[in-house]
Design a binder for these strands. Structure first.
Lengths: 200, 200
DNA sequence: TATAATATTGAATGAACGTTCAATTTATGA
DNA sequence: TCATAAATTGAACGTTCATTCAATATTATA
């Protein structure tokens, strides 16, 4: 049970790191601040994460895990029913449920580290490839898409989703935001339709 | 001429800031380091940019200006000939000439600040809206697209471009990179074709 | 219960941080 | 040329940073 304490402490620290980064930014969240926030001396933080670099590396793993978590319910559904409606999946992709599980500010701060850290870049890439494979799995079980290049379609759908997230983050006005979401959602539906039509 | 020295010094400092951020990251580039790199005391840096916040704010303006600069040649062409080929424009959008004028790491580091700074967010949004208007201008002068919703088309093209940039940054292998660029380029061409076809 | 491993504390380190300020040099305009 | 303004210097400020370490408390194991 000794190792359990260690693990739960680690988790506690990473979550504290994440919470403070959400408010003050990743670059303004120091080890001392994390300790203070959790009521422990900074030396205890460093006992579990010997350097700041390691701490950040673990935060990134946590964030990417959170991202996978968002897809979990849909993948469970796929497994049980052996089918999931692509349109519903796309709809969920564009829903703002994300923000409950993952803060965009922290996410993009971590993303910007891929340009100077190969390991982080690889971790991000693997995660994004995984997401595309999930979508491919869903598309492969749709009878309208049998024999189609679902890998390509999945790639094309996700690039719209990711571009949309990037761009939409600049808009605060809910009305404008919704209007633009609709545009990009339709853009993805058009992609799906295009592939389906070719089949007929 | 007094004000000229001041302005060129400011430019020198911002460019030094940018250069160091490219190598060490925005968050690791201090005022002291910028001064050292340029052979001036940190107090001189602060004479021109009273706080670090102001310094960052000016770096962001510089970066967004650089982004506009990339489009300059194409816009000149549009002005002179009163026409520019959309496909050529799209091709340029996907070219890696960007990296010579603007480092992706610095760009996304600054981007991540939009989530905690309203002014930065607004500046980013205005820039992105401007880019879309440029493309709309080009599309509007294409005879195949007369009467079409070029604003919508421009929005849909750019979201693919931006998603592609986000995603492609995770790939180092030039072969894989090129293969994926082709996919996304074709995705944009499909959008253009779709609108053109509807016209016939 | 004795022993070993783990968890936690608190004080201390030097380096780097952003920022201030008074003094000095250089350029400008009357 | 002289006065004024702008540009530049260098030393200093207190604060925060990541990190270290030896000492203590707690828990697990034998």
């Amino acid at each position: 049970m000794g190792i359990k304490i260690s693990e739960s402490r680690k988790r506690e620290i990473i979550q504290g790191f994440y919470q403070l980064s959400k408010v003050n930014g990743l670059e303004n969240t120091s080890i001392a601040k994390i300790g203070k926030h959790l009521g422990m001396p900074p030396s205890l933080v460093m006992h579990y994460f010997p350097t700041r670099e390691i701490l950040i590396s673990n935060l990134i793993s946590y964030i990417l895990q959170q991202m996978l978590l968002i897809y979990q319910p849909m993948l469970k559904e796929l497994e049980i029913q052996n089918y999931a409606d692509p349109h519903t999946f796309v709809n969920r992709l564009f829903s703002r449920d994300w923000n409950l599980l993952l803060d965009d500010g922290v996410f993009y701060s971590c993303y910007s580290l891929i340009f100077r850290n190969k390991r982080i870049k690889d971790e991000y890439r693997v995660l994004h490839e995984k997401l595309r494979e999930y979508l491919k799995d869903i598309l492969d079980r749709d009878e309208n898409l049998i024999g189609k290049d679902t890998e390509l379609l999945s790639e094309q759908i996700f690039v719209v989703v990711e571009g949309a997230y990037y761009y939409l983050s600049m808009f605060d006005d809910p009305e404008v935001y919704e209007q633009k979401v609709t545009i990009f959602k339709n853009q993805v539906y058009d992609l799906l339709r295009k592939y389906e039509v070719q089949h007929l």
